[in-house]
Nucleic acid binder design. Structure first.
Lengths: 262, 262
DNA sequence: ACAATAGTGTCTATGAGACAATATAAA
DNA sequence: TTTATATTGTCTCATAGACACTATTGT
């Protein structure tokens, strides 16, 4: 923290100036596969390369607000900025169920901060990475300094050469999502306000890349107190018995956790 | 990442300058209780208040290097800077077992980044918090901009008024340590290179603030493959059967996790 | 009727937690 | 001896995973 140390010859008033940016690992489900939002850079450095969306933090702007703003700009999501402040997209130091009405969907949490000297060829940039999860979002709209913005399957994105250290950040974001599904109720962030147990299972299967037994999964989820709450409504989609609709409950931590072996 | 957006009137060359600092939540065990390192500030703002140790990142200095440097300066720990680079104190994006010889002890990992406008009354400061764990360290030596540095029991520190948003950071650090003990082998970071199962159990009991059954704990730890490795040596301390000495093994994640209820 | 998905019931192996029993030291 | 700690063994209960079976729809 802002403690200087004259003993080491470091002057607090003459602190070194850094640029501070935010980068986003925005994940969503499209046709049962995990996708990440990537932009194609239209400016130097790395012109033409794919990169995570992001940008500089403005003076007086909070970090999470900058992340929400960038997400909104890139996805066209109706005011994700406002959402991050409580209504919908839940900010989460802890676990993102801020408001009582559990109509929350989506999730935005800080991931990690990257600040190696030289990670940006132009200047010293410290970038705070955020992880955003959301149900299927509209196609992104390019604009500004990017020539394209698209949802890319994560396995494709991971084998693509990304600008800066974005491959490292993306890897961290995906791993964070994978492990958090085990011991938190975060999976509901990928679902719309009302969803079926199958929807939820598809989230786990897509993020973990493995199949789960529908019967045991159903029992596990519905027997965890307040993980999901039955709405009473059902929905029928194609053949088969209609599925009950649920909304996410107040439970945030799953104990014991859901295992990811099978 | 460093993507500007002319469309929003933001100029990449004219990025806003921020001060970047690191703060440390340094935890250790003293007389079977969890302690945190606090300094008493000798400069404005918050002169006379207790605070987490920390300071500004220098130009060209990596974030984790700055954290290790501050830790070394405050604890007098023989070159913690060097330790963070591989030998002893294990840096950990993942889980801090970098070198093969498992003689590593201690742990340093990034915690979270705090950058609310106004968190520092002087100027806009973005602070990257680090969590440091170590076996019993020598008494800290004050110096520079602090008039005192001491190991304080965490329950005392949590009821103390701390400078800046350090109460929030401390809370996050302690909670991180508590939860990581459950599903990782991080507890060995609080132990010297060789330790007994009882030593390890005392770590859990101090961090979690609860008693564990010595018999079940012993069986759980020794039956988790490569969590701890028997050295063949024993140590006797007071009455009772001599205890076998172990060193930490390569296992980093515990599955199933150690539970923290009893 | 047949296929497909939703949801319930049952069985078993595994592991956590309780706790008896044994081993080896100091006082 | 008595006491204290280490370590092993046993028992029981809960549950994860395998999987049979019932329920309810579309074709």
């Amino acid at each position: 923290m802002p403690s200087s140390r004259p003993s080491t010859g470091y002057d607090p008033a003459g602190f070194a100036p850094f640029a501070v940016a935010v980068d986003l690992v925005a994940l969503t489900l499209r046709s049962q596969a995990l996708h990440v939002l990537l932009v194609t850079r239209a400016e130097d450095p790395f012109t033409g390369s794919q990169a995570l969306p992001g940008g500089f933090v403005r003076p007086g702007e909070d970090l999470v607000a900058a992340a929400a703003r960038e997400l909104a700009e890139e996805t066209g999501l109706a005011d994700a900025t406002g959402l991050a402040e409580g209504t919908g997209l839940a900010e989460a130091t802890g676990l993102g169920h801020t408001a009582e009405p559990h109509h929350t969907f989506g999730h935005l949490e800080q991931l990690a901060t990257y600040g190696s000297p030289g990670r940006d060829p132009r200047m010293r940039v410290v970038s705070v990475a955020y992880l955003a999860l959301a149900p299927r979002l509209p196609d992104p709209r390019p604009g500004g300094d990017v020539s394209a913005a698209d949802w890319v399957p994560v396995d494709v994105a991971l084998t693509t050469s990304l600008a800066f250290d974005h491959h490292t950040i993306l890897t961290a974001g995906i791993e964070r999502a994978r492990s958090k599904l085990e011991y938190t109720s975060l999976a509901t962030a990928f679902c719309p306000p009302e969803f079926t147990i199958s929807d939820l299972r598809h989230v786990y299967e897509a993020v973990w890349g493995s199949k789960l037994d529908p019967r045991n999964f159903h029992r596990k989820v519905t027997s965890t107190p307040s993980f999901v709450i039955e709405t009473g409504r059902t929905i029928t989609d194609g053949p088969g018995r209609p599925a009950a609709l649920y909304r996410s409950g107040p439970t945030t931590t799953l104990s014991p956790p859901l295992t990811r072996e099978p």
